[in-house]
Design a binder for these strands. Structure first.
Length: 198
DNA sequence: CTACCGATTGACT
DNA sequence: GTCAATCGGTAGA
């Protein structure tokens, strides 16, 4: 069944959306191939007081999607990689949740081919790697993730894993607003990205 | 036009 | 732990 999370799920504080996204299933529909992965690591970027957020300095050509209604995708490039954000909190509020890692559960052979590795733990254990594995690029920037026709959306997990434990830390790789504890991951999950500066 | 830099990754000491 | 690769957007001459 195709059942994307509704806009109301995303239309909340990114801090809450980020933690609620852990354990949910991200689905990518490419032609007739379906890729799925459990979201195991995310980071929240706030609309106020967060200098690391791309919307902190206001709207520009690159971050327009951040200002769309909650539930849209914001894809941007970092070096030669793409990163995927899910827009939160209503229209014209530039907050989002960055998908940092997923645990592959469907379409793994396709992901292995895209990533050039057979090690499942390394297919999507980082924001850039995840985008390569799931074939996410700039063409997905600004799409609505709440319609059944979307080629990218998040849905409830089929396995009711309600006992997941959430760990928190500072975000990775940023130079401003470093002290905010806005990185969340599923504790002891082997598919999260490697720890670096924390 | 050039200079600079970042929400990264992979290779290496 | 350190470091370079060499993308795309932005600022400034």
């Amino acid at each position: 069944m195709i059942n994307p999370l509704p806009r109301s799920f995303y239309d909340r504080d990114p801090n809450l959306v980020a933690q609620d996204l852990l354990g949910k299933v991200l689905v990518r529909n490419i032609n007739k191939k379906i890729l799925k992965g459990v979201i195991v690591e995310v980071e929240a970027y706030l609309s106020l007081g967060d200098e690391a957020a791309h919307g902190f300095k206001g709207k520009n050509q690159r971050n327009q999607s951040l200002y769309k209604e909650a539930g849209h995708a914001y894809v941007h490039s970092m070096r030669h990689h793409f990163l995927l954000d899910l827009v939160t909190e209503g229209v014209n509020v530039p907050s989002s949740v960055l998908i940092r890692a997923v645990q592959p559960i469907d379409g793994i052979s396709v992901m292995k081919k895209s990533r050039g590795t057979d090690v499942v733990e390394n297919l999507a254990n980082g924001p850039g790697k995840f985008c390569v594995a799931f074939n996410i690029d700039k063409t997905l920037d600004g799409i609505d993730m709440t319609t059944p026709l979307s080629s990218l959306y998040v849905t409830e997990s089929e396995n009711l894993e309600k006992n997941i434990r959430i760990a928190t830390s500072k975000r990775i790789g940023i130079s401003r607003s470093q002290d905010m504890l806005l990185r969340f991951w599923i504790k002891e999950n082997p598919f999260v990205s490697r720890k670096r500066k924390i």
